[in-house]
Computed example of a mutant assay.
Amino acid sequence: MKTLALILSLVLTTSLNLAQDNIETYSIAIKIDNALNNDGHMLIGLHNADTFMKGKGIQNSKSKITDGVVNITFENVTPGIYAIMVLHDANDNGKMDFDTSGMPKESYGMSNNPMLFGPPTFTDAKFELLNEDKEIIIRF
C-alpha cells in the first residue's frame, strides 16, 4: 500500500512539473529614448494589478542611461495583463523624490504614455501580453 501511494505521488508530481514546463513565455522589450540627461539610473518595473503603485514589480530592472536612451527586456513573462512603470532616479537614491507641494522632482513614465493630472492608475497603463513578444516605447 505504501509503495502504491509513493508511485502515485511521484506520477502526479512529475505530471505537474511537465505541465508547468509547457507554459509559453514571452519577452517584453522596453525602450526609453528621451531621458533628460544621463544622471543616475532608470528604474523599470513590470507590474500586474496587485503590484502597481505599491512597490516593486513582479520583475524589475535598473539600467544605466547612455545618450538619453535605455533598452531593457523582461524575459520569461507569461501571458496576462501588465503595466510598465519607469522612474529616472537621477540622484540614485532608489526612490521618487517629491517637492514640498507633493509634485515629483524626477521624471517618470509608464506604458501607454498617458498624459495625466494626478496619480496614474493601472487602467491608464495596462496592456495585454498574448501569444507573442511585445515592444513598448515609454516617453517622459
Rank of each mutant, 00 (worst) to 15 (best):
G94A: 13
P120G: 04
E24V: 14
M85I: 11
F98Q: 01
R139N: 06
K95P: 05
T66D: 04
I30E: 06
L8Q: 06
S61A: 13
S63L: 12
M110A: 04
P104L: 02
H88E: 04
K64F: 09
D67K: 08
L4I: 09
I84Y: 00
L36F: 05
A83V: 11
N37K: 02
N76Y: 01
K134W: 05
T66G: 08
D33W: 02
I7N: 00
I72H: 00
N48K: 06
P104E: 04
G102D: 08
K134V: 08
L87K: 01
Q20I: 15
G109C: 02
I72P: 00
N91F: 09
A125V: 10
L116R: 05
L8E: 07
T66V: 14
N38S: 11
N38D: 15
S107R: 01
L16F: 15
N113L: 07
Q59R: 10
V69Q: 05
F122Q: 05
G118V: 11
M96E: 03
K134L: 10
T3K: 08
T121V: 06
S111N: 02
L4S: 06
E106F: 12
L43C: 01
N60K: 03
G118F: 08
G80M: 06
I32M: 01
F140D: 00
G57L: 06
Y26Q: 08
M1G: 14
L46M: 12
A19T: 10
E24D: 15
L16E: 14
N71V: 12
I136Q: 03
R139Q: 02
A29I: 04
V86T: 05
Y108F: 15
K126Y: 11
K126F: 07
L10P: 07
S63K: 11
T3A: 10
V77M: 09
N48T: 15
N17M: 13
N38P: 09
L46F: 10
Q20D: 13
K31D: 06
L16W: 15
M96W: 02
D99Q: 03
H41V: 14
E106G: 12
F74M: 03
L12P: 10
L16K: 11
K105A: 03
S9K: 08
G80W: 07
G118R: 06
E106D: 10
K105V: 05
Q59W: 11
F117V: 04
T13Q: 11
N131Y: 14
I23T: 11
D133E: 12
P120V: 03
T13C: 14
G118W: 08
I84Q: 01
S27I: 10
I44D: 03
Q20N: 15
I30T: 10
D124I: 01
N71Y: 13
M42A: 08
P79V: 06
F122C: 06
N76H: 07
E135Q: 01
M115N: 08
